[in-house]
Amino acid sequence: MDVVINGEQRHVTPGATLLELLKELDLDPRAVVVEHNRKIVRRPALGDVTVTEGDAIELVHFVGGG
């Protein structure tokens, strides 16, 4: 199943939750903020949201800035 993560087409396990997706990507859920189809998904809810074909997912964090 293909989804778009941070603007890139990626193949992910069908039926995965956002929490499982982060694990697949080796990302610590405490260190990223997840936007799923333009909606922010809070950390406690990451395990409740299932990813479906074509979803747009943004994974962001803090970087250096002024």
Binding site: I5, N6, G7, E8, R10, L25, L27, V32, V33, E58, L59, V60, H61, F62, V63, G64, G65, G66
Partner: peptide, 8 residues
């Protein structure tokens, strides 16, 4: 700090 995409 700034908010940017995680480098996957």
């Amino acid at each position: 700090v700034a908010v940017r995409r995680v480098n996957l």
